[in-house]
């Protein structure tokens, strides 16, 4: 038997979040998400959580389990190696209800860094070609599924809501490293401030919590290095 200790909170009714325990008998290979669905279907229909794809590609089911940010759908209960599993909503966000948080500020920042390819030159007759070597430069950053596990895990986010956070900055690196993108200087200017790269203290909670094993802190450092070179040459 495993006890799932889940933080429950309904802002319309409850004064503050409180933990409630659910004891379940896990089946072989049961993930946290399976357990949550099991509880919702058989024990407590009021339990609220987000989920969609169940295969670690949509990023909806990110939550905190035993203090670590992860995806509920690709983490098996047995992998946590504990008889008591504490589930909480992602820190640093407003709780909407139970395990569902308000992601709007996260996506505000994501929109602000222009997460799309910007080209200025006239389009070529066929597609814009890229060598496999250059594609490799941002292989890591391109894996991001925007689950916000990294941004939520960053201690800087817990006091300062103006910081862009690792997810948005990794996305900036994804386009800066892409040689088809023609807005490098604009992108580097956007992150060379107290909302951007200079607030990172390389605490590495972002890299540690990434369910896609992206070296988020590394991406941020590559981006920062680029900002340094451009700044020294007076181009940012």
């Amino acid at each position: 038997m495993v006890v799932l200790r889940i933080l429950r909170y309904n802002p319309a009714k409850d004064e503050r979040p409180t933990f409630r325990n659910y004891e379940i008998g896990p089946t072989a290979g049961m993930t946290i998400l399976d357990a949550l669905i099991h509880i919702k279907e058989n024990m407590d229909p009021s339990l609220t959580f987000r989920r969609s794809c169940r295969s670690a590609i949509c990023g909806s089911c990110a939550l905190t389990a035993n203090g670590k940010n992860l995806l509920a759908c690709n983490t098996q209960l047995s992998a946590l190696k504990k008889k008591r599993i504490v589930l909480e909503p992602l820190p640093g966000f407003q709780i909407l209800r139970d395990l569902a948080v308000d992601w709007e500020p996260f996506f505000d920042k994501y929109r602000a860094i222009k997460p799309y390819l910007i080209t200025k030159s006239a389009p070529p007759a066929k597609e814009r070609i890229q060598s496999p070597d250059i594609r490799k430069r941002y292989d890591d950053a391109a894996k991001c599924i925007m689950c916000s596990a990294c941004t939520s895990s960053c201690p800087v986010m817990w006091t300062d809501d103006s910081y862009l956070g690792p997810a948005a900055l990794t996305k900036v690196w994804r386009f800066v490293a892409d040689d088809r993108d023609e807005a490098t200087e604009e992108r580097l200017s956007m992150v060379s401030n107290e909302k951007g790269v200079w607030r990172c203290h390389t605490i590495f909670r972002c890299s540690e919590s990434c369910p896609k094993d992206i070296d988020t802190a590394g991406c941020l450092e590559f981006l920062r290095k680029k900002v340094v070179w451009y700044s020294l040459r007076g181009r940012v």
């Binding site: 979040p17 407003q94 201690p155 006091t159 605490i203 590495f204 890299s207």
Partner: peptide, 24 residues
């Protein structure tokens, strides 16, 4: 509305994370 930011909020969580090498 429950607080989700600020120094007490930070302290509580950062101390809990302080056994992780990077945070330590």
């Amino acid at each position: 509305m429950e607080k989700h930011r600020g120094f007490p909020y930070y302290t509580k969580r950062v101390l809990r994370a302080s056994l992780e090498t990077g945070t330590f």
